[in-house]
């Protein structure tokens, strides 16, 4: 199908993009990789009358590794996956990218677009929650920083105001004694997560000092798992305590069922994938 007609702008700076957003207001949509927005426009689930394409803004692309890992919002999955330094600094991100969509989706789709879209089955929201990433935003009123924990507010809904642009995502680097993993059960046709779990662990000697677990695909948005996290924190972080904590994942969460996976099945898979992700994160943390 063909999208409804719209006017097209391709600004070359964030300032110009913000000015256009201010001028067109609700009629306008930002276009990043287009791999969530254009399919929705083809099906006429979205029909913006103005598109503001961010692809000509070079300042929004690229990876910098100075202390933290900073990734421009318009950096494609492919560019993230091919970045050699990133494979060292944050291997979990490079590995997650390989699980997203397919080669062509990764060549166009962007990290910023995926987070701003906040698809309930997308991979990156869970990872940013588990890694405690911060999202950097520019608006006409100035700039602000939003913690990943405050960013995903509902299905396809974020803390971004309509006149704001997500410009960069910062991840704290992983040091000795820290480990993270993201694992998912992909939908066989779309590759989106039927269930995806991101886990982060920080050890203090043999003890688990910090634990963050986030689940995607199962509910209306990616969510942390406080019960399972608390069960693991302060404990020995061995196979037994991981197995026990995993049974608490998904508790207190509204889990969706659909044609492909029932609520019961998803609930079971949340526990299975939590266990696997924690086990992989622990192995990395132990080095």
């Amino acid at each position: 199908m063909i999208p409804r007609p719209f006017a097209y702008h391709a600004p070359t700076s964030v300032a110009e993009a913000l000015r256009l957003l201010g001028a067109y207001g609700d009629e306008a949509k930002l276009l990043a990789g287009g791999h969530s927005l254009l399919p929705a426009m083809k099906l006429r689930l979205a029909a913006p009358s103005v598109l503001i394409d961010l692809n000509q803004i070079a300042a929004l692309r690229g990876v910098t590794l100075h202390g933290s890992v900073a990734i421009g919002s318009m950096t494609t999955w492919a560019a993230i996956g091919q970045h050699a330094g990133l494979r060292q600094a944050l291997p979990v991100l490079s590995a997650t990218v390989q699980l997203i969509g397919d080669l062509q989706v990764r060549n166009r789709g962007t990290l910023g677009g995926a987070l701003a879209h906040a698809d309930p089955a997308a991979d990156a929201p869970a990872l940013t929650l588990a890694l405690a990433a911060t999202l950097h935003v520019h608006g006409l009123q100035g700039t602000r920083t939003i913690a990943a924990a405050d960013f995903f507010t509902d299905m396809l809904t974020t803390a971004l105001a309509p006149d704001e642009i997500l410009t960069a995502i910062k991840f704290p680097p992983l040091g000795a004694g820290e480990g993270a993993a993201y694992l998912k059960l992909p939908h066989p046709a779309s590759r989106y997560a039927v269930v995806g779990v991101a886990a982060y662990l920080k050890l203090d000697g043999p003890q688990v000092r910090v634990c963050r677990i986030a689940v995607t695909g199962a509910g209306t948005k990616a969510e942390r798992q406080p019960q399972a996290e608390q069960a693991l924190c302060g404990g020995p972080g061995d196979a037994e305590s991981i197995a026990a904590a995993s049974t608490l994942a998904g508790e207190g969460m509204d889990i969706l069922g659909d044609l492909y996976a029932s609520e019961l099945y998803r609930r079971a898979m949340v526990k299975v994938y939590t266990k696997r992700a924690l086990t992989a994160a622990l192995a990395e943390a132990r080095g």
């Binding site: 097209y8 287009g34 399919p39 692809n55 080669l103 062509q104 166009r108």
Partner: peptide, 19 residues
């Protein structure tokens, strides 16, 4: 619909011609 755009493969149904 896969074609190469500046040397990399893309789904031509999910790119605008103006881009």
């Amino acid at each position: 619909c896969v074609v190469h755009l500046n040397g990399v493969s893309v789904k031509a149904c999910t790119v605008l011609a103006v881009q």
